[in-house]
Computed example of a mutant assay.
Amino acid sequence: MAAAPGTVLLSGIVGSTAYGFAHAGSDLDRLGLFATPTEELHGLHRPVESHVTTAPDVTLHEAAKWCRLALSCNPTASELVWLPEDLYETVTPLGRELVGIRSAFLSGPAVRKAYLGYADQQFRKLLSRDTTDPASRRRAAKHARHLVRLVEQAVRLHETGRNLIRLPDPERVRELGEHIADRPDSAGALLADAAERLARPGVLPDAPDPRPAEAWLRRVRAAHYRPPQSRLSEPSH
């Protein structure tokens, strides 16, 4: 794990390796969250809220920023608390607590907006790709795989309240992605079906419950507060 501007509370391997898409030579993507020393939050300037490197590929979000992303059901950030146990690399007690309250971040409208929004972005990339460029075809297959993954995760969240990160049938998703990469228009039906299923009643609430996140974040701040050393007595006048 790359150096963080604070204490890493939870981190793990995400992306293609987590989904089951990885192949020989695939990069490892890591995601985590860290706690800024609480006293650094008291000054004039806010400390950094995200720390990103590309060699290695690591993204770390400050605890408060991660909570805001998760409350909006950001697909990339949210998967950190739904990883299979063997993919975690750092799990502190506060990190374990966060995994325990993961369902409180979910809401039906946010899942629909975030997941279908990301899937639609992949769809637009497919429609606008350069069909004469072989490298573009490889990127298209990747966009198509993630489109399929996003809509299936969205439907599963909506209908079960659980986010399955490690796909049970990654080869089926890979094959469907190859088909969509060659025929991008075929993804339209997949998106329409997902939207229709997400419009039905599901198990998720209409809004997340921010209270567990707020209480957890306050525990984080208390645990990472280091009082400054006592000042030397000022000279008497």
Score class of each variant (00 low, 15 high):
Glu97Tyr: 02
Glu97Gln: 15
Glu97Ala: 09
Glu97Gly: 11
Leu98Val: 06
Leu98Pro: 05
Leu98Gly: 05
Leu98Thr: 04
Leu98Phe: 07
Val99Pro: 01
Val99His: 01
Val99Gly: 00
Gly100Glu: 03
Gly100Gln: 01
Ile101Val: 11
Ile101Arg: 02
Ile101Asp: 01
Arg102Ser: 09
Arg102Asn: 02
Ser103Met: 00
Ser103Pro: 02
Ser103Lys: 03
Ala104Leu: 05
Ala104Arg: 04
Phe105Gln: 05
Phe105Tyr: 09
Phe105Gly: 03
Leu106Asp: 00
Leu106Val: 01
Ser107His: 01
Ser107Arg: 03
Ser107Cys: 08
Ser107Lys: 02
Ser107Gly: 01
Gly108Cys: 06
Gly108Arg: 12
Pro109Thr: 04
Pro109His: 12
Ala110Leu: 02
Ala110Asp: 14
Ala110Pro: 06
Ala110His: 05
Ala110Ser: 11
Ala110Val: 01
Ala110Thr: 06
Ala110Cys: 06
Val111Tyr: 00
Val111Trp: 00
Val111Ile: 01
Val111Cys: 02
Arg112Cys: 00
Lys113His: 13
Lys113Asn: 05
Lys113Ser: 15
Ala114Thr: 00
Ala114Pro: 03
Ala114Val: 10
Ala114Leu: 08
Ala114Gln: 07
Tyr115Ile: 09
Tyr115Leu: 09
Tyr115Gln: 07
Tyr115Ala: 10
Tyr115His: 03
Leu116Ser: 08
Leu116Tyr: 04
Leu116Glu: 05
Gly117Leu: 04
Tyr118Val: 15
Tyr118Gly: 10
Tyr118Gln: 11
Tyr118Glu: 08
Asp120Cys: 10
Asp120Gln: 14
Asp120Phe: 14
Gln121Met: 15
Gln122Pro: 02
Gln122Lys: 12
Gln122Leu: 08
Phe123Tyr: 15
Phe123Met: 15
Phe123Leu: 14
Phe123Ser: 12
Phe123Trp: 15
Arg124Met: 14
Lys125Leu: 11
Lys125Asp: 11
Lys125Ala: 13
Leu126Asp: 15
Leu126Ile: 07
Leu126Thr: 13
Leu126His: 05
Leu127Gly: 15
Leu127Lys: 15
Leu127Ala: 08
Leu127Glu: 14
Leu127Cys: 09
Arg129Leu: 12
Arg129His: 07
Arg129Lys: 08
Asp130Leu: 09
Asp130Glu: 14
Asp130Met: 05
Thr131Trp: 07
Thr131Gln: 08
Thr131Gly: 10
Thr132Arg: 12
Thr132Tyr: 06
Thr132Ile: 02
Thr132Leu: 10
